[in-house]
């Protein structure tokens, strides 16, 4: 076992997650356009899995970057907390330059909106990305129908907010592609 193979494994899985996110995003855009063209008064949006995939992709990218070092074996932290993992990535001298040049909106989205919804952060009784939850008024809610992020990002008719996020993610993945080549 070496750091390169650990890092590469995380990176390949991250790319897989991001590729699936892009396919799903394209599908959701098409579906929404069809609904709007049909003058459907209720636009059904099933985008919660898109956020799960993004969360998984970024988590693995951060872990790949951490493991991608030349010294002693650096196992990535066994942690799903995107906010912590992003903060660690920012402090990696090999990639901090990328963060300095990047649009902070993507990172704010990942750290402040997505991270608290990761199931281990959210807990059982509050809104989260993957599992149903029960409100204090005993109502059962679930991500596909009740995730506020869907309203905020995918209900925007032109997807402007989310396009920015996806663009930022694309650059994030490209950066890691570069790191993987040079190290």
């Amino acid at each position: 076992m070496n750091t390169q193979s650990i890092s590469n494994a995380f990176f390949q899985e991250a790319k897989e997650n991001f590729c699936a996110a892009k396919i799903l995003f394209g599908h959701l855009k098409e579906e929404k356009q069809t609904q709007m063209a049909n003058d459907d008064s209720i636009i059904h949006l099933r985008g919660s899995s898109l956020f799960v995939l993004l969360q998984m992709a970024v988590e693995k990218l951060c872990k790949a970057a951490y493991a991608r070092q030349k010294g002693d074996i650096k196992l990535p932290p066994f942690n799903h907390d995107l906010e912590l993992l992003m903060r660690i990535a920012m402090r990696n001298p090999s990639i901090k330059a990328f963060f300095e040049k990047s649009n902070p909106e993507t990172y704010a989205f990942l750290m402040k909106e997505l991270s608290p919804l990761q199931p281990s952060n959210a807990g059982r009784n509050s809104e989260n990305l993957e599992y149903p939850w029960i409100t204090p008024k005993n109502k059962v809610k679930y991500p596909a129908a009740d995730l506020k992020l869907i309203i905020k990002y995918l209900h925007d008719p032109y997807n402007r907010n989310f396009l920015k996020i996806m663009g930022g993610m694309e650059r994030f993945v490209l950066l890691f592609n570069k790191i993987m080549r040079v190290s």
Binding site: P77, E83, L84, I88, R91, N92, P93, S94, M111
Partner: peptide, 30 residues
Amino acid sequence: DGVPSCSRPSPFNFDAALSEGVPYPSSVIL
């Protein structure tokens, strides 16, 4: 702020990055 509480602080270790002007390894605890 924004990092979870821990029972024991553990450092995250980084190699030197000469191309980025960092000629020493670093270790950070958050």
